[in-house]
């Protein structure tokens, strides 16, 4: 069985509620979002044309890619418009000291 490979990234203190930021994990561009205290990690590439999602906008639960306005639910990763798209989701947890750990699955 594969062991999860958690990597420490930034601290929750540096990712305010309503904020998102891009980090690099094992060479992959990862997007961290904080929606009302819920932290999620996704590939920082829009499923449409791989544009960097951190250049877009996070408004409530809606994450909008700036390039072509594709919209996603930032908590579930599901597409809103179009609704058949989906963000690539990564394992993500916040440690007791506030460190955000991400596992990109390899």
């Amino acid at each position: 069985m594969e062991t999860a490979r958690w990597r420490d990234t930034i601290n929750l203190d540096d990712l305010w509620e309503g904020d998102m930021t891009a980090v690099t994990v094992d060479g992959e561009a990862v997007l961290l979002v904080n929606v009302d205290g819920t932290v999620r990690a996704y590939s920082n590439r829009c499923p449409h044309q791989a544009s960097a999602l951190d250049e877009g906008d996070l408004d409530g639960e809606t994450l909008t890619c700036a390039k072509h306005l594709w919209e996603f639910n930032a908590v579930t990763g599901c597409g809103v418009n179009p609704d058949d798209a989906r963000l690539t989701s990564y394992g993500c947890q916040v440690g007791d000291n506030g460190t955000i750990y991400v596992d990109i699955g390899r």
Binding site: E55, G56, D57, A66, K67
Partner: peptide
């Protein structure tokens, strides 16, 4: 600068 346009749209 698509980000500017996103902001203006809002």
């Amino acid at each position: 600068r698509p980000r500017d346009v996103l902001d203006v749209r809002r």
